[in-house]
Computed example of a mutant assay.
Amino acid sequence: MSALKDQLNAAVKDAMRAKDKARLGTLRMATAAIKQVEVDERIELDDARVLALLDKQIKQRKDAARQYRDANRADLAEVEEAEIAVLQEFLPSPLTEAEIDALIDNAIAQTGAAGMQDMGKVMGELKPRLQGRADIGAVSGKVKARLG
């Protein structure tokens, strides 16, 4: 069992003991999503896959919060933002811009990327290192600028 899944399960128990319904609901949704993937694919998820799943859930909630704000529903947007805060507790610390730039330079050097046709190779190298620690879309834009 992955350490991240253990942390999530322990947090569910803590939230139950504290009778924190909002936190408990968010954590249960996260563990249900993990369990769903494990059942569908008949595998035990490792930390990298759990991290990717949490990252995906955070992105979905950010999109929902933005849509709620656009629709003048601040109350619903705040619920989504509270869920984001709970999920972010389980992500590793975010990378600084300098660290991201260094990783991009390293990936370009390792893959021998010469132009835009090598974008997939560079992103394939970067994605596991950045998962949960940086916005992949923003990093993709930086890589595109460097290769273009």
Rank of each mutant, 00 (worst) to 15 (best):
L126P: 04
E44L: 14
A77W: 15
R17N: 05
L53K: 13
L91T: 12
P92C: 08
L126G: 01
L130E: 01
D46F: 08
N72L: 04
D46Q: 12
D6L: 05
R69G: 00
D63Q: 08
D46C: 07
G25A: 13
S140Q: 03
V139I: 03
A64C: 12
K5I: 05
A48V: 12
L76H: 12
V79F: 13
E38I: 05
R69F: 14
K56G: 10
R42Y: 03
G132C: 08
R17M: 02
A30W: 11
L95W: 09
M16R: 14
G120A: 06
Q110E: 07
E83A: 15
G124D: 07
M1K: 02
R49P: 08
V12H: 05
I104F: 03
S2T: 02
E81F: 14
G148R: 14
I104C: 04
E125Y: 04
I84C: 12
K5A: 02
L91G: 09
D105C: 05
R146D: 04
A145N: 07
A134C: 05
Y68G: 00
K127T: 10
V143I: 05
A134T: 06
L27G: 08
K35F: 13
V12L: 07
I58H: 14
L51S: 15
K59W: 13
L24F: 13
D70N: 09
A15E: 11
I84T: 11
A109T: 01
D46R: 12
L53C: 11
Q131P: 00
D75T: 10
L24N: 09
D135N: 09
